[in-house]
Computed example of a mutant assay.
Amino acid sequence: MNLMFYAVNQVLQQDSELGVLLQTLFSFAFIVYLFYAQRIQAMTMLRQIEVNLRKIKSFRDKSRETAIEAIKKFGKPAFDPTSQVDRFMEHFMIAPVDMDPAGVVGKLGQIVNVREFTFEREVAQMAPEATPAQRHNLENLLEASLALNVFYKVIRHYYLIGKKTMNIYIIMQIHMILPALIQQVEAYSAALQAFRDGIPIGDSVGPIVAAKLLNGAPTKEVAKEMVAGETTIEGRRVIVIKALGPGGSVGRPGDAIERLLEEEDGK
């Protein structure tokens, strides 16, 4: 062991040509790192973002293909729905100005209703032979594809800006939140099959509980795709509200509650 250290020491001595060469290389590497460390770090992060961006693009393309196949299967359109699916995936909603909070909820509700109406009309045109429940499922499938497209375009936007400007702060921001975004993208991608086949997920527990509480009691439609029924629980009159179903639609519970309050005079 002592002989090894002695040999290394001899190599790195100043009068050794190899030692001078190694010291020169180390000094040069230190100078390069001193001036280009941030750029090297930025390029490394950009490379990692690019890899994940390709992954997100593959998820987006898969969702697009799944939506097109589902529309052809359930809707039986007389034309190729590819162009309409591509147009649907480019939809976006501009939220109302919220600097003046008075009335912003009503404005947002109106925009959401218009968005919902537009999506329903688009799906009805693409899948004329689909049942109402299948149309709701197709709408959910297309909205998942739309969300994946938004993820891809936003991340790509910041990636290109960071690559063009080599601004380390822009690159670091997208790089730091990328793991969380990837989890959301994977969740959307994993839900595609459920949306396509109408498999209950998430909020489906609520309608099941409501149906058990009603226990076959008659219901009436109180709002768009919302029904309500009366039952008695522990001697108390209970009004149960649930989505009409089947299909992936939650209806408009706010409108349903508002109408029931008006009918019951707020009691």
Score class of each variant (00 low, 15 high):
T66P: 00
A67C: 13
A67S: 15
I68D: 09
I68V: 15
I71A: 09
G75N: 09
K76R: 15
K76P: 01
P77R: 04
P77E: 06
P77I: 02
A78G: 15
P81M: 04
Q84F: 08
V85S: 07
R87V: 05
M89D: 11
E90V: 05
H91K: 13
H91R: 15
I94R: 07
A95Y: 10
P101V: 11
A102P: 00
G106R: 12
G106W: 05
K107R: 13
K107Q: 15
G109H: 08
N113C: 01
V114T: 03
V114Q: 11
T118I: 07
T118G: 07
F119N: 12
F119P: 00
A127F: 03
A127L: 04
A130M: 06
P132H: 04
A133S: 13
N137I: 02
L141C: 06
E143A: 07
L148C: 05
N149A: 13
K153G: 02
K153E: 15
K153Y: 08
V154S: 05
H157T: 13
Y158T: 00
Y158P: 00
T165M: 14
M172Y: 09
M172Q: 13
Q173N: 12
I174G: 02
I174F: 10
I174P: 02
H175D: 10
M176Y: 08
M176E: 12
L178T: 03
